[in-house]
Structures are given as C-alpha cells and as structure tokens.
Amino acid sequence: MAVWSGGGDVGGLVHHSDRGVQYTSIRYAERLDQVGVARSVGGEGDSYDDAAAESMNSFYKKGLIDFYGGWKGVMDVTIATMEWVAWYNSERLRS
C-alpha cells in the first residue's frame, strides 16, 4: 500500500509477513528489493507476530469496513482504506 499510494520514500520500511506463498514468491521479493523495502518473515509455527497483525485487522474492520459499510465497489473500499491508513499513521491519538 505504501508503494502503490506513492507516499514518497519507503526506504527503511520493513514488510513483515507470515510464510504465505504470496509473500515468499520470487517476484514479490524482487519487487520489495526494487523499492528498497526490507523483508521479514516470522518463524514457522510462531504465532506471536500474528497477534499484533490480527489486532490491527480487527481494528481496521470494526473502525472502517463494518462501521461505514454500504460500499459500492472495490475502488470505494480502496480509497477509504488509503485514507484510514493515512489517519492511522499520522493523526490518531496514541497512548
């Protein structure tokens, strides 16, 4: 999303994922390398990193997808998601 939205320099960004085939493919890794994004993959059978991701997904779904609903198409969700990510990263209150 950071690369696609054209938000500027993504140097220093770390992309962390599970061991899903889409995240371990050669082309995916080459694209991350091309734009200067470091790759990180959790250990096999290690669920600790998934807890934070699942919490984030739940927050996103409850705060945007379920709360607003009534989406007319994929583009509406995509734009709303980019706005939500921008809000989450730069405007929300942090503890």
Rank of each mutant, 00 (worst) to 15 (best):
A2I: 03
V3A: 11
W4C: 05
G8I: 05
D9N: 15
D9E: 12
V10Q: 11
V10R: 09
G11S: 15
G11P: 02
H15D: 01
S17G: 11
S17N: 10
S17F: 03
D18S: 11
D18G: 14
R19M: 12
G20M: 08
Q22T: 09
Y23L: 09
Y23A: 04
Y23N: 12
T24F: 02
S25I: 07
S25F: 03
I26D: 15
R27I: 09
R27L: 13
R27A: 15
Y28F: 15
R31M: 14
L32V: 08
L32T: 06
V37N: 01
R39Y: 02
R39C: 14
S40C: 13
G42D: 07
G42N: 12
G43A: 13
G43C: 06
E44Y: 01
D46K: 07
D46S: 05
S47T: 10
S47Q: 07
Y48F: 13
Y48M: 08
D49I: 03
D50A: 09
A51D: 10
A52E: 09
A52R: 06
S55H: 07
M56A: 11
N57T: 00
S58V: 02
Y60E: 03
Y60Q: 06
Y60K: 06
K62W: 00
K62C: 09
K62E: 13
K62S: 13
G63Q: 04
D66V: 00
D66Q: 10
F67Y: 04
F67E: 12
Y68P: 00
K72A: 13
G73I: 01
V74G: 03
M75E: 15
D76V: 04
D76K: 04
V77I: 15
V77Q: 09
V77E: 07
V77W: 00
T78L: 06
T78I: 05
I79K: 04
T81A: 05
M82Q: 13
E83V: 05
W84P: 00
V85F: 03
V85G: 05
V85H: 02
N89L: 10
S90A: 08
E91N: 07
R92K: 12
R92F: 03
L93I: 12
R94I: 08
R94H: 14
